[in-house]
């Protein structure tokens, strides 16, 4: 078990190293960092001075080591556009993205599980067919179209919800939250729905498939034979066994929710990391791009690691196969 965790953790470190190399290569070789920092009338001598002060004349392995040590301490250099340390910008933007991603995941899980149970239990009802059709359309519509549609409905026509921004935020140290003000909550509704819709259809389909599978098993039949109420069978026995894979998938999906937040944040001008990244891509602000890649990879890799370890803790069968494979 311990050996498995260690090997798995080493793998994650390997992935992070690989991402680090890519991110360094971007930082160093895509475009000339000096050209991005100076004005047109900067003299050659001044340029050479900046080049030296940035350490760009050192051997590449030394530069890589320096970049890596800095990155491990969350020092990502200075943004070309904002002339501020990238780590500060990311820190400022991170709460917005994490709040949005969490809300979207909670929404997706809540509604996804509910609708999934419903469509598994009432397989032939009209509403189930509607749900199936809507989920197919939900998967086919690109995220940004859903966002635009919502804005048109609720901001332009009805005027109920704000179409951009986070509303008023409350600060706790460096963390800013929009969850405590009315305007903040109102601003959160449409982006969360837009971001969570895809995960919701995914979870709904998963819960439905798992429920249908579980309802056919012998222990459910036995529970019926014992004369348990339908409610106890469905929610006490069937649902409980459905939830393990659902929670795994939702956990693994949290990373992609953060990545997909790029699109949602652009549609709603949500001041998070994703919007920062999109603007960085447009303005060729390599330090931000490289740092975003590193931070998001770290989140991804950590989540995958935790889910993998939890899985082996929860399910003894997996431990057995891992042992045999080794």
């Amino acid at each position: 078990m311990l050996a498995f965790i260690l090997r798995r953790a080493l793998q994650s470190v390997g992935v992070m190293l690989a991402v680090g190399v890519i991110s360094f290569a971007m930082f160093r070789f895509a475009g000339d960092p000096v050209n991005q920092m100076v004005a047109l009338d900067t003299s050659e001598a001044q340029r050479a001075e900046i080049r030296a002060s940035l350490g760009l004349n050192d051997p590449v392995p030394l530069q890589f080591a320096r970049y890596f040590i800095d990155a491990a301490q969350f020092k990502f250099g200075v943004s070309y556009q904002f002339r501020q340390p990238v780590s500060m910008l990311l820190k400022e933007r991170m709460p917005a993205t994490l709040e949005l991603a969490t809300c979207a995941t909670v929404l997706a899980m809540g509604f996804g599980i509910l609708l999934g149970i419903y469509s598994a239990l009432r397989r032939d009802s009209f509403l189930t067919k509607v749900l199936q059709a809507v989920s197919l359309i939900g998967i086919s519509l690109p995220t940004f179209l859903i966002g635009i549609l919502l804005i048109y409905l609720f901001s332009v026509i009805l005027g109920w919800l704000p179409s951009f921004g986070r509303g008023e935020v409350v600060k706790f140290g460096w963390w800013s939250t929009g969850l405590l003000t009315v305007s903040g909550l109102k601003a959160l509704i449409m982006p969360s729905i837009t971001l969570g819709l895809f995960q919701m259809t995914l979870i709904m389909r998963l819960v439905r498939a798992e429920m249908l599978e579980v309802l056919r098993t012998d222990y459910i039949r036995f529970a019926r034979a014992r004369g348990l109420t339908t409610r106890a069978i469905h929610f006490g026995h069937a649902l409980k066994n459905t939830l393990v894979p659902v929670i795994t998938v939702a956990g693994l999906q949290f990373g992609s929710v953060i990545a997909f937040a790029i699109i949602t944040e652009t549609v709603f001008q949500w001041p998070g990391m994703g919007l920062l990244f999109v603007q960085a891509v447009q303005n060729v602000d390599i330090p931000i791009m490289a740092a975003y890649l590193l931070v998001v990879s770290l989140i991804f890799v950590t989540i995958n690691l935790i889910v993998d370890i939890l899985y082996t803790v929860v399910d003894p069968r997996l431990r057995a196969t891992v042992g045999r494979a080794a």
């Binding site: 690109p142 995220t143 940004f144 790029i262 699109i263 652009t266 999109v278 891509v281 447009q282």
Partner: peptide, 8 residues
């Protein structure tokens, strides 16, 4: 479409 929508 998404890349084009995002402006890149």
């Amino acid at each position: 479409a998404t890349l084009s929508f995002l402006g890149s």
